[in-house]
């Protein structure tokens, strides 16, 4: 791009095959497109939020092959052939996931903007077995910034789901 000056030099594109929330998609994308922008702008999945676009806030957290990633730091092209789960994939039938339910019950949200990322991160954290204590939850949820300051309630929500999981 540096030596452009021609209109045609806007950035090349690639075809990317993604499985998102169980459905396959073949997308032709500007190479500069992040996974986050691909989800939001090409698949209309706006549940994943852009808080900083620099990997610092966690609002865009999704699962790629089961692992949590900040989707603003990943190019969509890097996800070719991989499986992505977003907040929309957590409750496809409209029935809240236990983590979502617990967030509502414990008021683990205020403006709600960081919430999809918090929820995805919490779901992954439980799967990672990192919810053994409040201290552990706090530490492993610290990649998800909540400017409204709902942290104590987020911890309470995760603690409750972890306790239910342990009881099962």
């Amino acid at each position: 791009m540096r030596d452009s000056g021609k209109r045609a030099e806007g950035g090349r594109s690639s075809t990317v095959s993604l499985t998102v929330n169980g459905s396959g998609h073949d997308l032709t994308l500007d190479n500069r497109t992040t996974l986050l922008d691909a989800l939001r702008e090409h698949l209309a999945l706006t549940g994943s939020k852009k808080g900083c676009d620099q990997g610092a806030c966690g609002a865009c957290t999704v699962l790629v092959d089961g692992r949590r990633v900040v989707s603003c730091l990943m190019l969509a092209a890097q996800c070719d052939g991989r499986e992505v789960t977003t907040i929309e994939g957590l409750s496809p039938d409209g029935v809240l996931h236990p983590v979502q339910e617990a967030f509502v019950r414990h008021d683990g949200l205020q403006c709600g903007y960081c919430t999809p990322g918090q929820v995805m991160s919490a779901v992954a954290l439980l799967a990672e077995g990192r919810a053994g204590s409040d201290q552990e939850i706090r530490e492993f949820m610290s990649g998800n910034v909540c400017r409204c300051g709902a942290y104590p309630n987020i911890v309470a929500a995760i603690r409750e789901v972890a306790a239910c999981d342990a009881a099962v």
Binding site: L96, Q100, G112
Partner: peptide
Amino acid sequence: DGRPKVLGA
């Protein structure tokens, strides 16, 4: 508004 917010909706 908790439900739409946790759903990303």
